[in-house]
Design a protein around this nucleic acid. Structure first.
Lengths: 193, 193, 193, 193
DNA sequence: AATGAATGAGGGTTCATTCAT
DNA sequence: GATGAATGAACCCTCATTCAT
């Protein structure tokens, strides 16, 4: 454990380069050069180019998770506010998780089984959160109760995931944010009593 | 114009292979072999690998457009129904436009300027459609009129685009469809009077 | 079939280089350079470095076989003479099949299953030849008949294979030839009446 | 001299791995890991990968030598018996000296001058032994005396070396032993009066 | 229109070796 | 004595692209 300074450095550099140029167009050689390390050093710390990419994505997901936990654990926020805050934060965090985003493509789904695993795990985690917030909202009489709660939750998650779309598109975050409030109002109104 | 049978064949084969393996992992050689043509033939009909991919994506977008036009031009559908039908069809068509989907990634945006052009054009086209349907809905008193119509439209497009997200993810279409109705109700309710 | 001139050229060059430097120390790049061809060309004609090596070894074995057939099919030679001539020729041919020789090593046996196949096939072929010559010798009353003919044949093959040993060693052919006659006499006397 | 326990350990592990995978396919890293030592430790005790291999081969040759000396120094064995016992033992010992065997290849001869030295020395040692046994045999009137003694000896060594061949081949020792007796008889008969 | 042999610029990966601790 | 992080020179192999036929 002496110093994984090098490992961390490589990870950071790789994250930036993958984000800018994508997985295929980024060369191990470039990463090494940018980190002012020998190519061999990259391979000392990571088995593979793929392995390095995995590490980068995992890192991003952890950042997202801990960012969201801050909001989830805030007891002062009432359900409608918390949901809005959650989605807002989520949007912001995802906007920076560029590498995780790139993971959506066919190429990754087909070839990197592991990505599927990581995504799944993250989605389950998120499902639990949404469920909690909505259930709280119903219990506290903010939202319309429904026989089919799970469906409602599913739909919500879907929309929420849907929001990833615009993010991943070119204009993305910048253009999205201003109108986000309108969007939220539509959704909240849509599920409210 | 004698026979662009070969060209068409290559296009079809390429579409399938790009869809299955993605742009990078698909080789010109493999495409040629699958089409039982010589590698040189591919280059006779398409300047580039990129050029071939462009053709494939353009093809897909054209399919989407003509599919949607059928609904847009149906005078019997009232705004709320038409919007719902439009979104439903859109979902279905996009689900099959795998190559267009793959276009979302950073790598494409950064490196294939042309894609941006194609996307933009398609999005504008779609914007006009949505605007028409919503304006019609307001005029016919189905939807709440708003000072800020453009924002509403933008938001709608956003959600609509949002729906692409789940599609692109692994489970995709199959799992999405059943709950689509709930989703639509929330949205329609959200923008209704 | 236009011109496998290039393929043949590469094969020849590779054969020489593998012979001189061995499989591992020979670089595809060097082979290509020596043949004044592009590295890619080597890979156009041969899947692999291994594949190229296989082709080289196969070639050598074919040369050996056709060389030996000349003697085997010569009806004028009487058994003792034919055996001697056969072994002599075999020695000479093997001396030039350097790459086939190198195949003996653990490394090859462990990792190149195919080599085992090629060897086996060749050894069977050779077994049949020896058997024929000895049986002829017995029938024509030159050699001692034995109850256990197969064992005798096996032993002979063994010795014969044994002769590969010195060949593979450094001094090899040069030093071996002069004394070969003595050797033969010992063997022939050993199995004669 | 405190503890060359580590050195010995590395040597043993290296011997096994070289034997199983060959010189090239065996990595210093793997050796170190198998010995549960750091890679640096290997380099503390041996200058080179080559140096380590040398040590391994030397070890094997010493084992062979001392094994054969037991037979050579046995005064009770008469020449024909002793030769047979010697060859038998030699075969058995060589069968286990896998790394020494691998030394036969072109690659080693070309590039590892040192191997040539080690081989030469061993062969000389062996030449002396054979000479002694045969001369004894002639003196004691077991074998045919010949004007050209050196040639006879050379031939014998050659056959004897020849026996290495089958050994190095795949089936090797197992299949060889049963017929060894026949072989010996042929040879002994071949040089007897 | 079509072919397929030939090219060569990369890019990922391996591994013996060094060296500060 | 021992460690293990770091190095960088090689090396194999891929693949888009060209071109003579």
């Amino acid at each position: 454990m002496k110093s994984n300074r090098t490992k961390t450095l490589i990870l950071e550099v790789a994250s930036k380069m993958f984000a800018r140029y994508g997985f295929h167009k980024t060369t191990i050689d470039e990463i090494a050069r940018a980190a002012r390390k020998a190519k061999g050093s990259v391979y000392y710390h990571f088995t593979d180019k793929e392995d390095l990419f995995k590490a980068v994505v995992s890192e991003e997901i952890n950042t997202i998770k801990s960012g969201l936990l801050v909001i989830l654990n805030n007891p002062d926020l009432k359900p409608p506010v918390k949901i809005k805050a959650y989605l807002l934060k989520r949007l912001e965090l995802l906007a920076h998780a560029v590498n995780y985003q790139s993971t959506v493509t066919t190429e990754f789904i087909e070839h990197y089984k592991f990505i599927e695993g990581i995504r799944q795990e993250y989605h389950n985690w998120e499902g639990t959160n949404i469920k909690k917030m909505i259930t709280d909202g119903i219990e506290q009489d903010y939202f319309e109760s429904t026989e089919n709660l799970d469906v409602l939750i599913y739909v919500f998650i879907m929309v929420l995931k849907g929001l990833e779309g615009p993010l991943f598109a070119q204009q993305g975050y910048q253009e999205l944010m201003p109108h986000f409030d309108n969007m939220m109002n539509i959704l909240i109104k849509g599920i409210s009593k």
